[in-house]
Nucleic acid binder design. Structure first.
Lengths: 139, 139
DNA sequence: TCCATATTTCGATGATCGTCGAATTATGGA
DNA sequence: TCCATAATTCGACGATCATCGAAATATGGA
């Protein structure tokens, strides 16, 4: 026993997501991909546009993807990353959860509004799986 | 010369705000204050509710306030902190700026929605100033 | 099959961060 | 005035992080 342990990816927490965004390079990557939209961008294109060395960018993409903020859409030789808008909705809803004790007099239910699919980029365009963490030590 | 330098508080960046939130204790403090709403809570009450030692909490409150996320509402012996909802609106708008290149067909203008005062906790209840960073080395 | 290319992992360095006890600094009442 | 109390700063520890060159790993053609 002990063989299957720690292979299941821990669900990305709000702290994971906020940490992922709380870094200049990664925030730039994220915002670039927000602008680009659901089609996403190849890693090399991101590197070129933001002038980040490939090795560094790769680390950042791994962290953003592991946090569930990005989506690896196509995995051939060239990899395309796109924003998972659903993750943003979840994050914002979590941050503002039960705002003002839910008193609608004080607080327009912003969180609920965000949770609705009326939010950003519609009902999530069909995606490949939110590929990511399940990293087991290979080799 | 050189005497007045670096006393003007640098405006809190998005990275500052995200970093402030990207930490378990601080995120708990923030979410507690979101629930509480505009009235805010005394430092000692926060410490009691979240079981955080005063010295640690003080550091966290300074970071959250310095990032513009909290507001020191009353400064007598007991200090009352409250969420600056305006800061959250700004942050979310920044994160989703120019989403999908502004194409409304793809993207409901979430950022614009948040920027409106229809958002959370109305047009910001009258506050004392967003007291914070201007810290000069005293003593 | 073999190579060119896209991307990731390894590894090491310097820098920043979280924590909290002890000392310090206000403040408001007796 | 003096004290009890609220809150902050100081200081130091260990832990985590960003960076990026070099090496390793895929992939898709020729």
């Amino acid at each position: 026993m002990e063989s299957q342990i720690a292979l299941v990816p821990a669900p990305a927490s709000a702290v994971d997501r906020l940490s992922a965004l709380a870094q200049t390079s990664r925030l730039n990557v994220f915002r670039l991909l927000v602008r680009i939209g659901p089609e996403g961008l190849r890693a090399s294109d991101i590197a070129a546009r933001l002038a980040i060395p490939p090795a560094t960018l790769s680390t950042h993409l791994r962290i953003l993807t592991g946090a569930g903020l990005l989506n690896l859409k196509a995995a051939s030789r060239e990899r395309v990353y796109a924003v998972r808008f659903e993750a943003m909705r979840e994050l914002i809803a979590y941050l503002l959860e039960d705002c003002c004790q839910g008193s609608a007099e004080v607080c327009t239910p912003l969180a609920g509004l965000l949770a609705s699919q009326a939010a950003c980029c519609g009902p999530a365009p069909k995606e490949t799986t939110h590929e990511a963490p399940a990293r087991s030590r290979r080799r």
